[in-house]
Design a protein around this nucleic acid. Structure first.
Lengths: 100, 100
DNA sequence: TGATAACTTTCCAGATTGGAAAGTTTGCAA
DNA sequence: TTGCAAACTTTCCAATCTGGAAAGTTATCA
């Protein structure tokens, strides 16, 4: 059996969740933060890490006066996430033959 | 979208790989160690953690004189792994609608 | 009585993660 | 134009987590 190999940057629970959310659609900073239940600082740091890897794009937009931050996956981010998911799928296949 | 929540003990890359291997069948310590490419000490520690959680069973058996250690998932371990995989599948579904 | 295989433990260093608190930037209100 | 608040961003720090090296165990074989 071939053992899956993961992208550590994406695999970390917090960032995997962030990518999962962003894979569906662009989302606001606050929405993501509340979805994964972390502090501002933690999300900010995860986003920075993903941004530096070229996986996430940050867009600052004025929304009713106040500035809001929108997050989205870049093409490279989608590619990396999909590749990671493919590895997870291999693992899922192995597990799906299990009797519980 | 509901965000997946993971079992940290199982989610760590090394242990996720160990569980994936053991989900297929009982395996020898050395085989698992070589599959995931870690040192004896590291595998030993992961196994201990999984054993203490009741997820993995350790069986010592004499094989041609020398003693060998066999690892397998316990029913609780299978259950936890399958539940974790179910969370991953939810994530996979989200991602599978992605265009790359 | 060693010597060796096959782990297990201990020791330690480096990376990660998380929250708190301080800092920054921008858009009003006064 | 000064002050204040919102919405992040950075810095600081403590707690884990990982990983390998090396020492320790236990059982078997020469």
């Amino acid at each position: 059996m071939a053992v899956p190999v993961f992208d550590a940057l994406i695999h970390a629970p917090g960032r995997l969740q962030i990518c999962a959310i962003l894979s569906a659609a662009e989302a606001e900073f606050a929405v993501v933060r509340d979805s994964i239940k972390v502090s501002d600082s933690v999300l900010s740091k995860h986003v920075k890490a993903l941004e530096e890897a070229g996986y996430v794009a940050v867009r600052k937009a004025a929304m009713g006066g106040r500035q809001r931050t929108w997050l989205s996956l870049t093409p490279a981010g989608k590619k990396a996430f999909v590749a990671h998911v493919a590895e997870l799928e291999r693992l899922v296949k192995v597990a799906s033959s299990l009797s519980v």
